[in-house]
Write a protein that binds this DNA or RNA. Structure first.
Lengths: 210, 210
DNA sequence: TGCCAATGCAAGTAAGCGCTTGCATCATAT
DNA sequence: ATATGATGCAAGCGCTTACTTGCATTGGCA
């Protein structure tokens, strides 16, 4: 086995830990929690099974570590001030792109959440809900500000956020979570543009030439 | 154990089979395929475990039976001709309601698909993809017809279908799949109305008074 | 009445699971 | 140079799993 041989002791330790976590999130996401075995996780991480249990007290413990380790929310929030300086369409495209990037980065984490939120301790649910709340609030606060400025009409910003989220989440869901990249390999940039356009102008004809 | 005692032989047999299937879809959807045990399925269905294996050659076989047994697509397609006679907004609300009803009916089936599409044989994926294709085609063909009539402007009807689907699918996803009914118990009728309104008119202000 | 098919019950099998123990190795920190 | 701590290896423990076997019961059917 390829033991971690270099570096000082702390580093060696944390590198091993990270390798286990990296492998675990992948296997949990593809096989599910019950379907993934500690033997396979250890083997694929290139460590002995006993090492896995020296780092994590139990399999359940490992799952918790995986979930908290990869739940980091990215720079979507920091994009908001910049978005407010941009033209509406450009800002929405930027937000959509950043949102999709985020989803694709977190896809394994999201898969685990989806699969395990059922049989799960409240811990998972709480984490997932706060993740979603944060997400929605980013979108909603953007819409709220533009409504204050008079750029947007008077719709419910929270429901607007859900619509915006829904369009792109289900796109991601279809492209990534459903397992096959070769199913409807829709051009992402084109989809984003068309989605944003529909979100901005709606579907009705006869109001201007666009 | 409450054996099935009445009815002729065929009926008795198919009733038992159905009871096993009913229990299985519930347990597969909450615990996942690996997490659900044949013991518990049999017990909860009120039959001996050995009876389960007399009806289904293996656990995998039972999963396949569950999936094909509950995959029926409902009356959304038959709504289309009627929708074409309605005013646009009313038709969209009707389609959205029917779509949501369908999703809530199929929620266990959908959960299983989501969880097992990963480690799965191509069978599952194929079934799920054709389910989605059928769904999208219903929406897209409706938009295509209205574009032909000049009611709708010239957007890509397939992407429009995905947006329409996405709004409501992610609503369903949040209300039902994420495990907790008490999270954002959004009023469904209001959400449908607002979603449809956004889909029709977009978000921009300053074009008419609505 | 007598056969038969659907089911139950009890016991068991082989394999795999999460997890533990005891001991050896070896690079680093002192 | 020695102690230490992270790791590997091999074996195994107790338990659960999917699945099987043999036999008894029961109700429908000829």
């Amino acid at each position: 086995m390829a033991m971690v041989r270099r570096g000082n002791r702390e580093e060696r330790c944390s590198v091993t830990r990270e390798r286990i976590l990296d492998t675990a999130i992948g296997l949990f996401s593809t096989r599910g929690y019950s379907g993934a075995t500690t033997r396979e996780i250890a083997q694929q991480a290139g460590v002995a099974e006993v090492t896995l249990f020296r780092h994590f007290a139990s399999k359940e413990n490992l799952l918790e570590a995986v979930i908290s380790h990869y739940s980091a929310i990215p720079g979507l929030k920091s994009f908001l001030p910049r978005a407010l300086e941009m033209p509406y369409e450009q800002a929405l495209i930027g937000m959509a792109d950043l949102f999709l990037d985020t989803l694709f980065q977190l896809r394994d984490w999201i898969r685990i959440m989806h699969a395990e939120v059922q049989r799960s301790p409240d811990k998972l649910i709480t984490i997932y809900h706060s993740f979603l709340d944060e997400l929605f609030e980013i979108f909603a606060s953007y819409f709220r500000e533009l409504q204050k400025r008079g750029t947007l009409r008077d719709f419910d910003p929270d429901l607007g956020a859900r619509v915006f989220h829904g369009m792109f989440y289900s796109f991601f869901n279809m492209e990534e979570l459903l397992g096959r990249r070769d199913y409807r390999p829709t051009d992402r940039a084109r989809a984003v543009r068309e989605f944003v356009s529909l979100f901005i102008h709606g579907t009705l004809a006869m109001r201007d030439s666009r």
